[in-house]
Write a protein that binds this DNA or RNA. Structure first.
Lengths: 194, 194, 194, 194
DNA sequence: GATGAATGAGAGTTCATTCAT
DNA sequence: GATGAATGAACTCTCATTCAT
């Protein structure tokens, strides 16, 4: 299992740095290898091709992303509380890894449609997590029973994503996690029973 | 002024079609030229380089986009009404030009960071339009006085954009404009005084 | 029609020289381009890919090869005479273009199976020419009526080819065309009625 | 002496299979090692480099080839009889080892000029064997005294080789050894006194 | 103004060989 | 002796841009 060997993660982390610092199209395999401290050919012992590095990168990072959020939501009893936490964690995790933030919000979006479709497949898990919180809120009577879960989820993800992207494009010069409560409230107001 | 000559728009429209049909990375200058019915070299009489075509494309299309919305909002008296109309028009205009929808939501995002920064500069006018509606709502007492206009705008744009992108990625197989009232309400609920 | 433009033949002839002088695997596209006095990219305006250069090379050269032999055989009345002339012309034409001889006898055989199959398709015409001479000889009673034309053709081609290859491998240091009468006679003796 | 250890032949036989099944350019060292059931590095304990495997392969196989034919010709009294047997054995031995036939007739010829020169050195012994039969025939008065032994040998080898190659290219779908008498006769007719 | 043939820089990937274990 | 993870050199082809006509 390649995934358990240290060089696998070494290369993925090198890719994050190389892409964040050089940009998607300027992060050649040779640059990633150099950053990882391995030979070019070594990359291909762990990844099928360059695209495979990028998908793996996204999968690994997004995987722990979803996991951490799930852990954080675990003990909470209301959907509202969960939603607030989700926004907060999303913001915090990206604010804590600025390289990753640049890569996910700006660089990886330059990939071709095919790669983006694969990335979207990875994102699906996150979308389902949001959907569950929304459904719970509706079932428990916290949110309007007429709420269109699909639209609401697009609102949540779209808002969070746009907020993070704007922050990255402004060179991360303000405190992103500090915005979480306000963003969370704006969203909640949209869903809640009055 | 190149912008007034017929070939200028001829090339821009050819670029929309070429990109929508072939994808961003497969829309070579020669393909755009062929689609426009001109020689490759002629492109460079009207545009500085390939990037210039894309920015001009975005500027031209987004310009009429903002103009039309401004016209639509002109006679309306409440911010809420304006917001509802804005969403509706945004959805309608993209639903009416499916090539343009693919190009703006999927293909043009594959461009490099530099180009995307320029595109964002073009988007600024649209952002300001949204900001004005929000400020008006606050001033008139329709929206909460504590509303963070910047965040609210990111919520509006993020939600609309995510909704359109999801629709495009689902191959535009449902009625996008029909979603406008619901999306508008979700947003309004977030801003309104209870 | 690319084939009529001067650069088409310029590149093919450059390929013959580049391959003869550097060997099949050392005749990179850039070397061929340099030899032809054009840019690397220009090659691809006239040929689909590197393999296409090699097949075209073989087709062009073998095409005129067969044509010239057909012309030479035209007025002759006996199959024996035709066979003698065929051997003589085959030897003479390769002796006159030593680069081409190296390329066809040694270098082009290093190509992969796929390319060799395409080359064989080109050779078919030559094989048919030989077959016709043999059939004529049988019909006219010059050759044994029991002659297996397929085997006889393999004998003719195998013998000629081996003779030329041996000559090339010996660095072309003896007079190949001078061997033609003797080779022709050896073959004829095999076919003739006693 | 590496040559006496079991793994030496194990690797050579693995190379024959690997090349026959995958083609010359797709028979990487790692594939040969896998087929032989040894590690990649082990190959280099028995062979200097990849080329060395191929030459050794050819030497080993051709060595027993010549040996067997010499044995078969041993008791025969006429050169004609020997020639007939030589053709028959050549055909039979390759027909009996179809992997080897593919390798010698098609795949090994894709090797570079250098390797082919070394292969030709190995073939020399076979050529000498043929030469001896021819000389014997001339001395005994079976063949024409004016026979050019060098040319005659090229005719024999060229004819046999072309016949086998054609058979391999036709996917070995007819009975090659059955052609031996006819091929032998065609050759003999060329040499014999009338 | 319009053409389109020509340019040439730039990068992902393979695989024979090595060497520490 | 045997292993197999690691190495890194090497090459085809694309395509934005130019410029002579």
């Amino acid at each position: 299992m390649k995934r358990n060997k240290p060089k696998y993660h070494q290369i993925i982390n090198a890719a994050v740095v190389a892409i964040a610092e050089n940009g998607y199209h300027q992060a050649q395999v040779s640059k990633i290898a150099k950053q990882a401290g391995v030979a070019d050919g070594t990359i291909y012992l762990y990844f099928k091709n360059k695209e495979d590095i990028l998908i793996s990168l996204f999968r690994e990072k997004m995987g722990s992303f979803v996991e951490e959020i799930q852990k954080a939501l675990a003990g909470k009893s209301t959907a509202a509380e969960k939603l607030m936490l989700l926004v907060e964690h999303h913001f915090t995790m990206l604010a804590e890894d600025r390289h990753l933030a640049v890569v996910t919000q700006l660089e990886l979006r330059q990939s071709n449609k095919e790669l983006r479709l694969k990335i979207n497949a990875v994102l699906k898990e996150y979308m389902q997590l949001i959907d569950e919180v929304l459904k719970e809120g509706v079932e428990k009577g916290e949110f309007r029973s007429s709420l269109n879960v699909l639209l609401a989820r697009q609102m949540i993800f779209g808002t969070i994503d746009e907020t993070v992207t704007t922050w990255v494009m402004n060179e991360q010069k303000y405190d992103l996690p500090a915005l979480a409560p306000e963003v969370g409230n704006l969203l909640l107001n949209g869903f809640s029973i009055r």
